[in-house]
Design a protein around this nucleic acid. Structure first.
Length: 218
DNA sequence: ATCCCGAGGG
DNA sequence: CCCTCTGGAT
């Protein structure tokens, strides 16, 4: 199947069945989303959502983070992955937002990436979700699902390469939604260790499933 | 043992 | 390119 056809059917399916996908991280403003996404590295959204209510009550904005320190922040996030690194990142994040960005969340990818704990993936999420820019954040789900479906070539071995391949084929206005669609599919259907092909509606266009049929003996 | 909406440093 | 960070669920 042609790649163009794969993309068309992938986008058609999700446009029809999940027209308004959203992140599962809990937040109520750009600052909270930024913090939540920084915390979500190598950690499930569910666990992040367990610590953010108390965290946001104590630190409702960049100023409060800037006035605190990594030691105190650590006590609020000790139950998630890499609490030491992330508490240091958040302390520095608060300070930089206050000192260099007037306590506003910057909109450009380059400026976002200057913030401690914010790499390309997190910067793309903020640009896409907060500012509705056509930025494709490639996390573990997007990477895996894109390869399994056959949306990107095997030579796309890095998140950046996958990002560029996806951007080539997804219409600009659908990029923010496609990001969520790939994540939702990876989280609930195309699981890393046990892809649920039996309930998957995309098997007709899936490269992984196609190969699976060839190698399975009945 | 592997995975989870990765980032920073060497 | 590599390595380290390193909690909790499956």
């Amino acid at each position: 199947m042609l790649k163009k056809e794969r993309f068309r059917r992938f986008l058609d399916y999700f446009t029809s069945n999940f027209p308004e996908p959203e992140t599962e991280l809990h937040y109520k403003d750009p600052f909270q989303l930024l913090v939540a996404v920084v915390l979500s590295a190598q950690c499930t959204d569910k666990r992040v959502n367990m610590v953010t209510p108390a965290l946001f009550e104590r630190f409702p904005d960049a100023q409060s983070l800037a006035l605190s320190n990594a030691e105190e922040i650590f006590t609020y996030i000790r139950s998630i992955s890499y609490p030491n690194n992330k508490s240091k990142h958040l302390a520095g994040l608060g300070r930089m937002l206050v000192e260099q960005f007037g306590s506003e969340i910057p909109a450009s990818i380059d400026e976002l990436q200057k913030l401690p704990g914010v790499g390309r993936k997190t910067a793309n999420v903020i640009a896409s979700v907060v500012f509705n820019q056509p930025a494709m954040a490639v996390d573990t789900h997007v990477f895996r699902v894109s390869h399994r479906l056959g949306l990107v070539p095997k030579t796309a071995t890095t998140p950046l390469a996958v990002e560029k391949e996806l951007m080539k084929h997804i219409p600009t206005e659908l990029v923010p939604k496609a990001h969520h669609w790939l994540i939702l599919h990876g989280r609930y259907v195309c699981l890393a260790r046990s892809p649920q092909c039996k309930i998957c509606k995309l098997t007709p266009i899936c490269q992984y499933y196609e190969k699976l049929q060839k190698t399975t003996v009945f």
